[in-house]
Design a protein around this nucleic acid. Structure first.
Lengths: 215, 215
DNA sequence: CCAATTCGAGAGCACTGCTCTCTATCTGGA
DNA sequence: TCCAGATAGAGAGCAGTGCTCTCGAATTGG
C-alpha cells in the first residue's frame, strides 16, 4: 500500500512538481483524501519517502554505471560513466531530480533518514578518486585551506575512509560541478543557448575530470 | 503601486518561498485579494516581475563588484570579486536566488522579458574572460566539439562579441560551476559536511578560475 | 462467534487562486 | 458647478488544497 501510494504520487510528481496534491493522489487510487492519512501522516512525510527513493534510485544508477566499467583502473572512464548516469537519470526523472537537488520546499526540513541515501552517489565518486590516487595528477596538493581541516577530519571519520584532503577537495569540486551542470541544463538555463547538450555535457565533464580531479 | 506590491511580495518570498500567497500579500497591504488583480493579472505575472527584479539585482551586484576592481588587467581578481558578489547576494536573498536558479515552478513558463536581465551576470564573466584572452593560459584550445559550433556561432551573433569558442567553453563552465557551488551551499547540500563555507568557496572559485578559465 | 482492530467515507475548517458584480471615489471637460 | 467616465477597491462565490475529526463497515484473531 505504501508502495502503491508512492507510485501514484511519483506519477503526479512528473506533472505537478513539488506541490503535488494528496487529494489528487487519493482520487487516482479511488480513495478519499482522509484515507490516505492512515499511511502517511502528512504531505511532508510522503515527500520524504519520495526523496529517499529518489536518492536511492540515483545512487543505484550511478553505482551500476561505475560497476559496468570493467577496467577498474580506468578512473577517467568510470568518472564519465557516472556523470552520464547522473544526467541520464535526471533527464528521465526530472521531477525527482528537482525534488532532491532543487530549491528546498519552504516549510520542509529534511529528516536524518535521507542522509544515508543521499551519500550513495558522492561515495561512488570518492571511490573513483581514491582508486585513481596513485596515477592521477592531483591538483591542490599542499594547498588546502586551514579552516577546512576540521570539516575534512570529521568527514573522514564519518566515512571511515583514509582519504587525503586534496582528494576530498578535488572530489567535492567535481561532484559540485556535475550537480551544477545537470541542474543548469534541467532547470532551463541552457534553453536557447546550447542545443547539442549531450556533447556539451560530455566535453564539460571530461574537462572537469582532467582539471579538477586530475584524471 | 506596482512597486509596493512587489516589495510586500518580496518579504513574503523570504518566508513562504516560491508558493507565496496573493491573499497574504493583499492582507498585508490592507486590501482584499481581488483588488490586487488590478495590478497583476495573475500570480505568475507577479512572480515574473519578481524574477526580473531578482536577475537585475544580481546582475547589478556583479557588475558593481567587477567595476570595483581598479586593476582591469587583474582578471583573477575580477573573477573572484564576481564570485563573492554572487554568493553574497544569494546568501542575503536566498528566496530570490531560489526563484531564478532553483527548480522551475511547475506550471510556470518564463516569458522572454526575463532573458535580458538573466544575461547580465554571464555577460560580466564573458567580459572578464575576453579581457584576459591575451594573458591567460586558455584551456580547451583546439578541442571544441564540432556539434557545438552552430550553438556557439548563433550565441556569438546574438551577443555581438567576437569571442573564440574555447573561451566560450571555459567561460560557460566557470559560470556553471559558480552557479553549482552557490546552489549546493544554499540548497542545503553542504549541511553537516562543510562549515567553513566562505573559505571553501574562496578556494574552490580560485581553483575553477585557474583550471577552467586559465586565470 | 464475538471483541478488537483496521480501513475507508464523509463532513468540516481554514486556506488558496481567480472571476464576477457592485459601489464608492476621483478626474476631466463643458 | 455639474455630470459623464474612468478607476480603485469590496464582497461574494467557485473549485481546489492540507488536515482533523467522527462514524460506520469490513476484517481479523482468539
Amino acid at each position: 500500500m505504501l508502495a502503491e501510494i508512492k507510485a501514484v504520487a511519483r506519477r503526479h510528481l512528473a506533472t505537478d512538481g513539488a506541490n503535488l496534491s494528496l487529494r489528487a493522489v487519493a482520487r487516482d487510487m479511488g480513495m478519499v483524501s482522509s484515507a490516505l492519512y492512515r499511511y502517511y501522516a502528512s504531505r511532508d512525510e510522503l515527500l520524504t519517502a519520495l526523496i529517499i527513493d529518489a536518492y536511492d534510485a540515483l545512487g543505484e544508477a550511478v553505482e551500476r554505471a561505475d560497476a559496468s566499467v570493467t577496467d577498474r583502473a580506468d578512473a577517467r572512464g568510470r568518472w564519465l560513466a557516472c556523470c552520464h548516469a547522473v544526467r541520464d537519470w535526471a533527464l528521465a526523472e526530472p521531477a525527482e531530480y528537482a525534488l532532491i537537488f532543487g530549491s528546498p520546499v519552504p516549510g520542509y526540513a529534511a529528516p536524518v533518514d535521507t542522509v544515508r541515501a543521499a551519500q550513495r552517489t558522492p561515495l561512488v565518486l570518492i571511490g573513483i578518486a581514491l582508486d585513481s590516487g596513485s596515477t592521477a595528477r592531483v591538483p591542490f596538493a599542499g594547498d588546502v585551506p586551514a579552516a577546512l581541516a576540521a570539516d575534512f577530519a570529521s568527514l573522514r571519520a564519518r566515512l571511515g575512509v583514509e582519504i587525503p584532503d586534496h582528494v576530498l577537495l578535488g572530489g567535492s569540486y567535481a561532484w559540485i560541478h556535475l550537480f551544477g551542470a545537470v541542474s543548469f541544463e534541467l532547470f532551463g538555463q541552457l534553453n536557447n543557448v546550447v542545443n547539442a547538450r549531450r556533447e556539451y555535457f560530455a566535453h564539460q565533464m571530461t574537462a572537469v575530470g582532467e582539471q579538477l580531479l586530475g584524471l
